[in-house]
Amino acid sequence: MNNNIFDRRLKAILSASGVERGELARHLGVSVPTVNRWLNGISTPNAYQLREITHYFGMPYDWFLEADGGVPNADDLAVKLGLSPETVEALLELAGSESEEVLTAVDDAVCAVIATINAVYDDLLAIAENSGG
């Protein structure tokens, strides 16, 4: 497992989701220091823990493990984000660069989109529950 990608993505998803380290640790049945070691790139979760992390956050395995993991094609992403395909292509080219700042910014943007989708979903569920649906 590429620690640099994994720890960066785990930090980003924790930040975007508002999940605390202790909450993730409790869910996985590990200690907070174990989660801290993952976040610092000192160690990585085992296969079972990684599976649980992906299920917990609703993200594909490859998003946590590969530099281009889980990135949809430009046309699909443009529709979802309400951007032109050209803009998305330019962003994806930047994401393909080796700049740590650019990669972190792209990861943060993806996490922000996911957090927004989850918030809208939660709002829709609340509306459905309140309307008796």
Rank of each mutant, 00 (worst) to 15 (best):
N2H: 13
N3Q: 15
N4A: 14
N4D: 14
N4S: 13
I5C: 03
I5S: 01
I5D: 03
R9E: 01
R9P: 00
K11I: 08
A12R: 03
A12M: 07
I13Y: 07
L14K: 04
S17C: 07
G18N: 05
V19R: 04
E20Y: 12
E20W: 03
E20G: 10
R21K: 09
L24G: 00
A25S: 00
R26Q: 11
R26P: 03
H27R: 13
H27F: 15
V30I: 05
V32I: 09
T34L: 07
T34K: 09
W38S: 01
W38I: 06
L39N: 09
G41Y: 03
G41R: 00
S43K: 02
T44I: 13
N46K: 15
Y48M: 05
Q49G: 08
L50K: 09
L50D: 01
L50V: 08
R51C: 05
E52T: 08
T54W: 07
T54E: 03
Y56S: 04
F57S: 01
F57P: 01
G58L: 05
M59A: 06
M59Q: 10
P60Q: 05
D62H: 08
D62Q: 11
W63A: 01
W63E: 01
L65W: 09
A67N: 07
D68S: 11
D68M: 04
D68W: 10
G69W: 05
G70Q: 02
V71W: 12
V71S: 03
V71L: 12
P72R: 03
P72C: 02
P72T: 07
N73M: 02
N73Q: 02
D76T: 15
D76Q: 15
V79M: 10
V79R: 14
K80I: 13
G82R: 06
L83Y: 15
S84A: 10
S84V: 10
P85G: 04
E86F: 11
T87N: 03
V88C: 00
V88E: 04
E89N: 14
L91M: 13
L91I: 13
L92W: 05
L92A: 03
L92T: 04
A95D: 12
A95N: 12
S97Y: 06
S97V: 02
S99M: 10
S99D: 15
E100N: 10
E100R: 13
E101T: 11
E101R: 14
L103V: 09
L103W: 15
T104H: 11
T104I: 10
A105R: 05
V106F: 15
D107F: 04
D108N: 05
A109W: 02
A109G: 00
V110Q: 04
C111Y: 04
V113D: 08
I114C: 05
I114Q: 11
I117S: 07
I117W: 14
L124F: 11
L125D: 12
A126M: 07
A126K: 10
I127F: 14
A128V: 07
A128G: 08
E129I: 12
S131W: 05
G132L: 04
G132N: 01
